[in-house]
Amino acid sequence: MDRSHIPGILAMAIIVVASNILVQFLFGNWLTWGAFTYPLAFLVTDLMNRLYGPGPARQVVFAGFVVGVFCSLVGTQIMGEFGPLVTFRIAMASGIAFLTAQLLDVAIFDRMREGTWWRAPLASTLIGATVDTALFFSIAFSASLTFLEPENDVSWAGEILPMLGLGPEVPLWVSLAVADWMVKIALALIALVPFRLIVLRFRGNAAVS
């Protein structure tokens, strides 16, 4: 591992830890505060990919995955009002969603890296974030996957309600997923600004040195 990759690894670790903590705190009816920090993981991955290539980007992803597993293990030992803060299903969903989505992001970005500067980070993040959301919420809360952890009662997530309080009636977890996905998409667009500025600054510094 090159020393220049350490900032990316640290940034990913901080984002994963912060998101695991902030997911415990609600923001409105459909979100947690973790929804606003976790999407920054895609920004870190894309910056590493642009500046150093897909190999270092994957190293950062695997580092984030290891940190996430550690956070999940800690969470299973902390008892909340309704049981462990992190259940087996949530830990599995989180790990599978993170690793799949981030590695997909790396692959898509690398395939599109020669195009217009914004295409690779935007397309890879949009697709990665969509896969991440779909995998996490379906694995963690779908009634069809109850066999993954029969003793974990997630019936509350299956309550039928209007989507986001306004749309067609769907299980609660679908509204949670849609709200989470919408935040990810919004932040993917906003993240193009720091992505561009950091890449230009890095290249400027490299040219001077």
Results as ranks from 00 to 15, higher is better:
Y38G: 14
V16A: 02
L47P: 12
G204T: 06
L104D: 01
I90M: 10
N205M: 13
A120Y: 05
V74N: 09
L122P: 03
V208N: 15
L47Y: 14
V193L: 05
R196W: 12
L161N: 01
M163P: 01
L135V: 02
L172T: 06
M48T: 10
I96D: 09
A13E: 04
I190Y: 00
L135W: 09
M92A: 12
Q77Y: 08
V69S: 04
A41N: 15
G68Y: 03
F137K: 05
S175P: 01
V74W: 08
A18H: 00
A186H: 02
L197T: 13
S4D: 10
E151D: 13
I6S: 03
N152S: 13
V183P: 07
T125H: 10
L172F: 15
V60F: 11
R58K: 12
F98V: 06
V17F: 08
A120D: 10
L103V: 12
L85N: 04
W117C: 03
A188N: 05
V106Y: 01
A120H: 04
T37V: 15
V61S: 02
R50L: 11
T133S: 03
G115F: 03
D105F: 05
A57D: 05
A129Q: 01
I185L: 14
T45E: 14
S142T: 06
F88L: 11
P39Q: 08
F82T: 15
G34N: 09
F65D: 05
Q77F: 08
A179Y: 04
F25N: 06
S144G: 15
L192N: 07
G204P: 00
A101R: 07
A35C: 14
A57G: 03
W33D: 00
F109S: 01
Y38K: 07
